[in-house]
């Protein structure tokens, strides 16, 4: 067990962006370390602007770390991979395609019958049945985000990188999507790395929550949430984990809160 490499291994990873003036750098990540095992559901939380999206983009192969070791599925990340699908914070649904064309985008190599069936299945799962032929401009922001989630799920990726995917959704849809995602994750044995600034959301879903510090960010704490699902939001274990993260981030759960920030 000890010798098996985790699915994702991040060691001593640093990231700087060239700053506005020459020779200056914006240091975003500083000595980030964590492991993620196959099949885990891990949430990353942290103050906004700390580098969560940056870290996820490095994992996804869209950014190259300045220094450090980032290995996914046994190899250094050299670029994006169809087996590891990213759900973007800024909606990445293609506006020139209909809902069903978007959801089927990653399935063009499949036989038509199978593709249609998968598309139908995932459109239904995200509650967009009846909108198959609609274009994204005809949908609300929340519906567009659900299209993107369906597209990622339909592609049958082994790993999902989700960057605040439910941020644009209304409260009820968000609750439903959390449950659906957990159900899919349990049924399909995916590994999910889920970035959010919503601590409650993280504790409701994750096996483990990585808490990032302010910029330059590092993983300042790791909170294991060992509770059965679906989670009882009044259970002592839930409240304990939530309050622990709040206090790590320097807030208290009642009042100083960033519980449901808009």
């Amino acid at each position: 067990m000890a010798n098996v490499e985790p699915l994702i291994r991040v060691r001593d990873t640093w990231m700087s962006f060239p700053g506005k003036s020459n020779g200056k750098y914006v240091h975003v990540l500083e000595n980030v370390n964590f492991d993620i095992r196959a099949g885990e559901f891990v949430c990353i939380v942290g103050p906004s602007g700390c580098g969560k999206s940056t870290m996820l983009n490095i994992l996804g192969g869209f950014l190259k770390e300045t220094r450090g070791e980032v290995r996914v599925e046994g190899a250094p990340v050299t670029g994006p991979d169809p087996g590891r699908i990213f759900v973007f914070q800024e909606n990445g649904v293609f506006p020139w395609l209909t809902v069903e064309q978007n959801v089927g985008f990653g399935l063009l190599a499949r036989p038509e019958g199978e593709r249609e069936q998968r598309v139908k299945h995932y459109i239904q799962m995200v509650g967009l049945t009846g909108f198959e032929k609609s274009y994204p401009r005809e949908l609300s922001g929340g519906m567009r985000q659900r299209v993107e989630i369906a597209r990622a799920l339909a592609a049958e990726a082994r790993v999902l990188y989700m960057d605040e995917p439910f941020g644009a959704l209304d409260f009820l849809t968000r609750l439903k999507m959390r449950n659906d995602l957990i159900r899919i994750w349990q049924a399909e044995h995916k590994t999910v790395i889920f970035v959010t600034h919503d601590i409650e959301e993280a504790v409701q879903m994750a096996d483990r929550v990585l808490v990032m510090s302010r910029r330059p960010a590092t993983v300042q704490a790791e909170v294991v949430v060992d509770l059965p699902r679906p989670r009882d939001l009044d259970a002592p274990g839930y409240l304990e984990a939530r309050d622990k993260i709040f206090s790590i981030m320097g807030m208290d759960a009642h009042g100083g809160g960033a519980g449901e920030p808009k």
Binding site: F62, P80, P82, I85, F88, G92, F105
Partner: peptide, 10 residues
Amino acid sequence: VYIRAAQNFG
């Protein structure tokens, strides 16, 4: 984001 999504799908 369109390019990144496309590259992600290979």
